[in-house]
């Protein structure tokens, strides 16, 4: 593709977590359609710095769609208009000359803005801490092939495990619910034999943590699945609910073992 385009940006600017924020408009002429969206922001930032202004802060790292660090609300949709695409993999050829692009940070009480378009996604780590793991310590587990796992089960677990933790599901959800993220991890581990012993306990603890962090509940709008750059299915939310219900029904009090040692 040849030729460049001129676009106008409307960007959320906020100096710090407690500072008031607001939108500012920037002209971005001479943008190549081969640029990624973040490269376009790089260009805008270079011009801002040269003009003596503060550049726009935004999170990014790998720029190949896997680290989950980037994430912007672009024209009202999380990660912008292309399906199955992170912000860093969105290219300017998805826009046209003269476009007016609104850029906002992820909005949720649980994701406070740190600066401009950068938010704190700490709650996602804390949800994993609540049970998103298999409790095995480094050591000498059995031989990897001693535990056969059907290809289809492994594939389905992989579908869930593909989550990159970007938070687009929260951003896109009208309820600011984190169900898709939480369900993806519960399902990844719950679908595998390694995850069975802790399966229901995990679901109970992770759901409790996501509520504690102040996310909204799931009403199955389906927006999360559409926004997810890895196409994670809301079927996993259903699975999380099933595990949660079974866990709640069969929950036993955790006893403290006495007399050991």
């Amino acid at each position: 593709m040849s030729g460049t385009m001129n676009i106008t940006l409307k960007v959320w600017r906020q100096a710090g977590p407690t500072a008031p924020g607001g939108f500012e408009e920037y002209k971005a002429p001479g943008i190549s359609p081969d640029m990624s969206f973040l490269e376009m922001l790089d260009v805008v930032n270079e011009r801002l710095i040269e003009g003596g202004k503060d550049p726009i802060a935004f999170d990014h790292d790998c720029r190949e769609g896997i680290c989950g660090m980037c994430g912007l609300m672009i024209n009202g949709s999380a990660h912008g208009p292309s399906k199955l695409t992170t912000t860093c993999q969105l290219h300017m050829r998805s826009f046209k000359d003269g476009d007016y692009i609104t850029i906002e940070p992820w909005r949720a009480k649980a994701f406070p803005v740190l600066r401009d378009l950068v938010v704190d996604r700490g709650p996602l780590d804390r949800i994993i801490q609540a049970g998103g793991f298999v409790s095995v310590a480094t050591g000498s587990p059995q031989d990897a092939n001693a535990l056969p796992i059907g290809k289809l089960e492994a594939d389905e677990a992989m579908d869930a495990a593909a989550c990159i933790g970007c938070g687009a599901c929260v951003a896109a959800c009208p309820n600011a619910s984190v169900s898709l993220f939480t369900a993806a991890k519960i399902s990844h581990l719950g679908l595998l034999p390694q995850g069975q012993p802790e399966r229901y306990r995990r679901a109970l603890h992770m759901v409790a943590q996501m509520d504690l962090e102040g996310f909204g509940g799931c009403t199955l709008f389906g927006e999360c699945m559409e926004a997810c750059p890895k196409g994670i299915s809301i079927d996993f939310i259903k699975r999380m609910h099933g595990d949660y219900i079974w866990g709640a029904v069969t929950e036993k009090p955790e006893k403290v073992a006495l007399g050991s040692g």
Binding site: F133, V134, V136, T138, G139, S140, P141, Q142, D143, A144, L147, P148, I149, G150, K151, A154, D155, A157, M158, A161, H188, L189, L192, Q194, G195
Partner: peptide, 13 residues
């Protein structure tokens, strides 16, 4: 490989 499988890494099967 043993350790990663035990952790639930979904290797291809």
């Amino acid at each position: 490989i043993d350790q990663c499988v035990a952790q639930g890494v979904p290797f291809a099967r």
